[in-house]
Design a binder for these strands. Structure first.
Lengths: 228, 228
DNA sequence: CAAAAAACTTAGGCCAAACTAAATTAGCGC
DNA sequence: GCGCTAATTTAGTTTGGCCTAAGTTTTTTG
């Protein structure tokens, strides 16, 4: 509850920590020190140290040895970074010839450098999009974000058809592969077969059959047009 | 001559120092500690410290108590930052609705964050412009820059006409005033009178007469269509 | 040309943010 | 419920980049 009324500018590092914690919190659980460390590629002691500082600033709630949760203030900052990141990705793809596999790193640096004015100008130029090129929802200016619940392609039963809506990876190689395979948001896919023991799926997309690994299929988030 | 072969990434601070020194060197003289300190709004001891580090890295040549000069390597970095800054300004004005009085600060932050790829994409979108919105020349990819010699409006004799080509300030208030007065690059101005003792000038621009302070007139860089 | 002023550097300190090594706590198997 | 392991925190160090105070060197000026 230690309010952080003195609006000191947050550092790049702080913004990255808060964004990482926001992402890890998604699962409902508090974010653990080691998960944060792994995501940010830092040592656990470095994370412990930062957690102490951020708690003191009232940006997160820390239960020692248990993990951290964002406070309202911390969440506000995190969502602001998510909005920035996704809008920048959308802008780079929409106006500067970037492809979805190359935008992540660029956005990762720019999100810390752009002003609020520039972000809103980009949003305007794009027509206030609700999703980025990977199908990730873009929070609005007030931080509202509709996290739709999708079904991973891996869980679509054989015989059913689903539409890819979101791709949950930022690895360039995977994204290039998916693009090349025609598995991008908006595409309809029919699952024809599941191999057992978490094996690959056989699917039909764009009129032709292909086989896709289970792990990748878990990152393809879909809606089933008929279900619900 | 201490080559900096190990291409460690340069920090934001280092990039700012090199750019500042490049600008100060423009006058032919070495850049002094205090001039650098003033330009970057830092204390002189901080600058002394950084000068030592940058000299050790081979980015500049330091003669104690005399000043610093960029090495070829230092100049390369500085010009790269200038190219980035000016292209970003041009892009923001050209594509995102910025005006020439608001672009400086935004570019100042972005120039450290954008990749070479993004810069070249912006340059392409703009058609590889040679000048930014203030008329400052944009170095090309190889660092070549044509620093044209202009005559300040303040030095144009009464009765003569000149064309504004470049505006040498980044202060938003001054830029807004100039815009409002119709004194922007490309505009022809006739000087009708000089007040003595470094006083104001009377000029005609866009068909109407106005008075402009000496100091501002020194920042309006012109060519005389007839002279030379 | 000597003394005062200005400019510059050195000395020493601070803070953010990272690290390694060592100590502590939590969770689990038996 | 004891003790092992894994997770976490504490302790202590490093680096970059800034600061103030104090000492040097250069420049200016009476």
């Amino acid at each position: 509850m230690t309010a952080q009324l003195t609006r000191e500018p947050l550092t790049r590092s702080v913004e990255d920590y808060l964004k990482a914690i926001y992402r890890l919190e998604g699962a409902g659980q508090p974010a653990s020190t080691s998960d944060i460390a792994e995501l940010l590629e830092l040592s656990p002691p470095s994370v412990s140290g930062m957690i102490r500082r951020l708690s003191e600033q009232g940006l997160l709630e820390h239960v020692p040895y248990r993990g951290v949760l964002l406070t309202a203030g911390g969440r506000r900052v995190a969502i602001r970074m998510v909005r920035r990141h996704r809008l920048i990705e959308a802008y780079l793809v929409g106006f500067l010839g970037y492809t979805w596999d190359t935008v992540h790193d660029e956005a990762e640096r720019l999100e810390h450098a752009v002003s609020d004015v520039l972000i809103e100008r980009m949003a305007l130029a794009l027509g206030n999009p609700r999703f980025d090129p990977h199908g990730d929802p873009i929070p609005d200016r007030d931080g509202a974000i509709d996290e739709l619940v999708y079904t991973p392609l891996a869980e679509i039963p054989a015989g059913e058809t689903a539409e890819i809506r979101r791709v949950d990876t930022s690895q360039p190689e995977r994204l290039r592969y998916l693009e090349h395979s025609g598995l991008t948001p908006g595409i309809r896919v029919t699952v024809t077969q599941h191999q057992p023991f978490r094996g690959p799926l056989t699917i039909v997309a764009g009129g032709h059959e292909q086989v896709i690994g289970r792990e990748l299929a878990e990152q393809l988030l879909c809606v089933r047009p008929d279900a619900k």
